[in-house]
C-alpha cells in the first residue's frame, strides 16, 4: 500500500498535469512531512505556491486592467 504522503505527492503531480494548481498545492501540503528533504518536491511545491500567489494578485486587479492585458496579449500574438 502507498503511504498517505506518497499518495498525496502522486495526486499533486497528477493535479499539476491537469493544471489544477490549487488542488496540487493542497496535496503537496499533505505530502510535505515526508518529502521536505526532497529537492524536486520542494521546487515543485514552492513554484506552485508562487504561481497561486501570482494568480491571486492578478485576480485582485481591477477588471479593466485585466481586460487591457488580455487585449495586449492577443495583439502581441497576432
Amino acid at each position: 500500500m502507498l503511504s498517505p504522503h506518497e499518495k498525496a505527492y502522486c495526486q499533486a503531480l497528477l493535479a499539476l498535469r491537469q493544471k489544477e494548481y490549487a488542488k496540487a498545492e493542497t496535496y503537496f501540503g499533505q505530502a510535505a512531512e515526508h518529502f521536505e528533504d526532497n529537492r524536486e518536491f520542494m521546487i515543485l511545491w514552492e513554484t506552485t505556491r508562487v504561481l497561486l500567489a501570482v494568480k491571486r494578485e492578478l485576480a485582485g486587479l481591477p477588471q479593466e486592467e485585466r481586460d487591457k492585458i488580455d487585449i495586449e496579449e492577443a495583439f502581441s500574438r497576432g
Binding site: L13, L16, T47, L51, L61, E65, I69
Partner: peptide, 26 residues
C-alpha cells in the same frame, strides 16, 4: 500587471515542462 502576467506564464510553462519530463513516471 504585465509583469505578473508574464511571471504567471513563466511559472506555468516551467511546471508544464517538468511534468512533461515525468510523463512516463506519472
Amino acid at each position: 500587471a504585465r509583469s505578473l502576467k508574464r511571471l504567471e506564464s513563466l511559472l506555468e510553462t516551467f511546471i508544464e515542462q517538468v511534468v512533461a519530463t515525468k510523463e512516463e513516471r506519472l
